[in-house]
Simulated scan of single mutants.
Amino acid sequence: MASAAMPIVGVLGSCMGCMVFVENIAKQEPSAMNLMTFSTFLFISSIGLVFTSKFFTVKNQIPLEGYFKTVSMFFIVNVVNNQALNFHVPVPLHIIFRSGSLLATLILSVVIVGKSYSARKYISVFAITVGIVICTLATSSQGDSGLSMEEASKHYKEWSIGIAMLTFALLASAYLAICQQQMYEKYGKHPDEAMFITHFVSLPFFLVMGGDIVSASTKLSASAPYALIPGIPSLWVDLFASCILQYGCIKYVYQLNSRVDSLTVTLVVTLRKFLSLIVSIVYFKNPFTAQHWVGALLVFAGTLAFADIWGGQPAKKQEEKKKQ
């Protein structure tokens, strides 16, 4: 895990920093979510085009067909997760589903890849998932979080479709992590190339969101001027800063994915979501209740258990093994 230390620190640091700018945009202009996603994809693709692909003069180490499953699942997961909100799914429930990715990855790793894990791994994953759910519910209850469960029940048919979409996206997200790991095992580890190709090839799909992206751009341009740069709308500055930090976050995720198994990658990403929630509470001065402390205890205890911090057999002996 020594070689993975820097990517882990990079993921946690850059992603939590990015969250501050993303949340600031979301609070002032909630309709800018698709614009933020597109901007991140465009920024990462532009950096990759110049420094990784060198304007397509560098030959791919992984053939394009090798990216087919990864790119397809990557785009499907993002679209389905966003569209589920249009089916009257309460936002807290949406967040809870996305927080279950660690548990879903563990299950699919057993079912699809045929791996086995120690009892400690199962218990730690369950504790982390429950802890994030508790913190999410505690935070969402402090403010307006969309439709209530009672309101959602009035739209039972659409709500059921939304739940089905979230369930599918949860499993698809876990499968995506496995696809990325299998791609590296088959073609070798080329995280920078994979990062560029995955985002660049996905850009045309944003055409279906063109109207929404243009509308959000107009609203960002109408935001108040940035204090340090007169004449520049403040939300565009926040968007640019979020793109830079998101680039670092995703870059480190891809590096991590090339060095450790998919479950560990999902663990780090899940921990990042939790820490981002804590930063959000502190930075935006939201209350930190007893429920938050219970959730925090479960998350950090689960993380320590997963990493075998509390002794026992060496980590290598407890890592997942292929079934005979």
Rank of each mutant, 00 (worst) to 15 (best):
A26V: 13
S53N: 07
I47K: 05
F51R: 01
P314F: 14
Q28N: 12
A152P: 01
T303R: 01
Q180S: 00
Q318F: 11
L228H: 14
M165T: 04
A4H: 05
S242G: 06
T198M: 04
K316S: 15
A169T: 02
P230G: 14
A119H: 10
G162R: 03
L271G: 00
G48K: 07
R120G: 04
F41S: 12
F97P: 08
C18P: 08
C243A: 12
I309D: 13
Q246G: 14
M183K: 01
V201C: 06
A84S: 14
F274R: 00
Q181R: 03
F300S: 08
K115R: 09
F43I: 10
S258P: 00
E151F: 03
S53P: 03
F196Q: 06
F274E: 08
I163W: 01
T40S: 15
I62C: 08
D144Y: 11
W293H: 11
Q83A: 07
P90E: 05
F74T: 14
M6F: 08
T136A: 10
T266F: 00
G231C: 12
T40D: 13
V279S: 03
V77Q: 11
V294P: 10
F55E: 06
F43E: 06
L85F: 08
Q83V: 13
E319H: 06
S202G: 05
K69H: 11
A224K: 11
T264R: 02
S124T: 10
P204L: 06
I232K: 01
V9E: 05
G312N: 12
S202W: 12
S118L: 05
R98C: 10
I281S: 09
T303Q: 05
S109N: 09
V71L: 07
M165D: 02
T105Y: 04
V125R: 08
A301T: 15
F200M: 13
S258V: 02
P30F: 06
